[in-house]
């Protein structure tokens, strides 16, 4: 049972890494570790949007 739960947790984590949602999880964990108050999800995603705007961006191929 624990093995199944562990697998489900890993799978969920991989999916969230794929969609980029894991960035938020990582940020929360980092804040908790450092004992800092995290910013709101909205602020966090705004910052990520701004970053994306200025990165050359992933090309999409033919």
């Amino acid at each position: 049972m624990t093995a199944v739960l562990e697998m489900a947790r890993t799978l969920r984590r991989r999916v969230r890494e794929l969609t980029g949602e894991a960035r938020w999880d990582d940020y929360l964990a980092e804040c908790a570790e450092l004992g800092e108050q995290p910013m709101s999800r909205r602020e966090f995603e705004r910052l990520r949007d701004d970053e994306r705007e200025h990165l050359p961006g992933e090309g999409r191929c033919c």
Partner: peptide
Amino acid sequence: YLRVLRPGRVSEVT
């Protein structure tokens, strides 16, 4: 949706 309604919920909106 991702910007205003529920920021960051990518799996959900997909």
